[in-house]
Amino acid sequence: MKKFFSLILLIIIVVGMIYTIHQIPFGKNQSKIGKYFVANGKDETGAANIVTSVVVGYRSFDTLGEVTVLFLAAIGLGAILTTTKKQNHDIEKASLILNTGCRFLFPLVLLFSAYIFIHGHLSPGGGFQGGAVVASGFLLIYLACPGKRINKVGNTISESVGGLIFIILGAIGLFVGDRYFLANFLPKGELNTLFSAGIIPIIYIALGFKVGSELNSVIDKMMEES
């Protein structure tokens, strides 16, 4: 009975959505702001990847909030999990092959992640994706070498400094050029080269570090629990 009732409710909701969707032709037009970004993005921000120019350029304030959310998740997770009693599990050691393989892969993963977030303004990718890859590298180590832990101080510092660089870069924008927050005050450079798009790559690098270390601390906390 309850399931039936639930289904009816959900169907009503979806019917409402379908009625609205009728107003939106599928796959036909670009939106108003989308058109503008595609047309002007590369000139205004200097980033070849328009998604990046939106994420770190036009809507970088969203990104600031997003970083904050991630930061919050790490902090909140820590706050919630601090008060548990630590249980000592005997974790079975991983096999030699896994162990060695992971150690071998780890620097490569980090290198790859660095590539992703440094080239965020040129190709698909960016700070978040790169950060996720960083974290996956650390996750490998955690899984393969029980007992190894990240350097918490270093992790915290990179977490904080990453965020601070973002805000400080934004705040510098208040004093130079057009005087608005998160203004792209550095020279745009030549399109499609590494040193282009002003502050975007710098922010993305900072974000890469920040996201990576935040995910690391999440993983670290979770691993401590298990």
């Binding site: 639930s6 009816i8 409710l9 959900l10 009503i12 909701i13 409402g16 009625y19």
Partner: peptide, 12 residues
């Protein structure tokens, strides 16, 4: 969900 569904239903 009831709130949402009732609103949509009534309006529809």
């Amino acid at each position: 969900l009831l709130f949402l569904a009732v609103l949509i239903f009534v309006q529809l």
